[in-house]
Write a protein that binds this DNA or RNA. Structure first.
Lengths: 234, 234
DNA sequence: TCGCAACAGTTAGAGACTGTAACTCTTTCG
DNA sequence: CGAAAGAGTTACAGTCTCTAACTGTTGCGA
């Protein structure tokens, strides 16, 4: 996409940007967001300090780029998993998609924490991460096409139905994944699914279950099954 | 506890420590962990830079202290909520306790994020936070005394039963809150409850549901009800 | 083919921060 | 009352972000 090789200069520029990001990702993995330091990256690339500002406006811009990439990457992983799915088994679909998210996160915890971790109060995410977030969540929605929400989640479904009625953009997005009339349930399922996923994967990835006698996949499976139960899914 | 006033010097020392922590908390609220800076605190206290190192060994030590306080505070809030509870209604118990956690977190998001947010790779929490974590989670366990786990959570219960069999400390802890034989279900309930709570509250507090058409309490209630359903609680 | 604008890189340096060293003054206490 | 412990100071080393001002190099249009 966006044309591979333009001028040789532009190509070299892209290459350097990529190298910078690679090193930044390594620093991120080694010491978290705080450990990403332009000066050290520069030293490693063989440039001297301020030269990096030719490639990224600021340290924040670099991190933003990493966030964008991670979101897109996760969305792609989920999309790939959604490709080979049997439409008729909603519960299995949820397990497969949630499992794909978890696998992605466990394989590269630092990147998951980057997009899902504690936000810096001042920082606002780039608007296109919202698109990516929708791309991640979208494939979950069809699972709720024939949902029969239980008492427990009905208030949630009601609020989401109302939301869809007010916000045409969201309504349209829901309708792209689910037959008319099921928007409320689908949105509720999406939000609750995202919540369960965030809970299980977030705790696993941040190591808070270290030394406890359960495995991450069992925990996630239990959460997803409970969700499926709440919506009466097969 | 630990004797209020000893020498006047010790008292003054405690007072200064408290003042430092207060300012640190304000900085935390304003700009997240990264915004807590000893030099700026010193300026505000009226001391000059290095003087703060008389009170805290390092910036990390200060943050650790804040974490310890926050944990203890949350545990206290949950303990208080657990005080006035009807033993016979497990589902209501879960809602009350989870609601107490959420209220605490929503009232002071920065402190919740401090203890529950992204960990710094190098950092290891002080061991007594584990006690506090148990103090937070303990009151949830009695709700699962008469649980009848559904298919969905049974693998989880099995793993936790096995864990209790292997780790006598954990088994004893569970038995302090629940009759013999229910340890597995109680531990599973605790872990799943913590997961649901973390998912719902974490997303709410970090503002990721901004502009979505649901409220934090409805989301949490749905999660907790689903959990209660999974364990066949009244 | 030449010339110049855009680009890539440099050094110097300001300003914020953490943390150490060495030193002075004050309190406490035996 | 005198010495040790404590509270504070300045000076400084080192890391980091980012700006300013300057130099060399590319590439493209006339």
């Amino acid at each position: 996409m966006t044309a591979g090789a333009q001028s040789p200069r532009a190509r070299y520029r892209e290459q350097t940007r990529a190298e910078i990001k690679d090193i930044a990702l390594r620093q991120l993995a080694e010491g978290g967001t705080a450990a990403v330091a332009l000066t050290r990256i520069a030293k490693e690339v063989g440039l001297s300090g301020p030269a990096l500002y030719r490639y990224f406006d600021s340290r924040d811009a670099l991190l933003t780029d990493l966030i964008r990439d991670a979101y897109a990457d996760l969305a792609a992983a989920v999309g790939r998993a959604a490709g080979a799915l049997d439409e008729s088994r909603p519960r299995a679909r949820l397990h497969a998609l949630a499992g794909a998210c978890r696998s992605w996160a466990v394989a590269q915890p630092h990147r998951y924490l980057l997009i899902q971790g504690t936000p810096v109060p001042g920082y606002t995410a780039p608007p296109d991460t919202l698109d990516s977030a929708r791309a991640v969540l979208g494939p979950f929605l069809p699972a709720f096409a024939a949902a029969e929400p239980s008492e427990s989640v009905r208030p949630m479904v009601a609020q989401m139905t109302e939301w869809a009625a007010k916000d045409p953009v969201v309504a349209e997005w829901a309708r792209a994944h689910v037959p008319a009339g099921a928007e409320g349930a689908a949105l509720a399922g999406g939000v609750l699914g995202w919540t369960s996923l965030h809970g299980a994967v977030g705790l696993e990835v941040s190591g808070q279950f270290e030394g406890m006698g359960h495995t991450g996949d069992t925990l996630l499976a239990a959460q997803i099954d409970a969700l499926a139960d709440s919506f009466g899914l097969d």
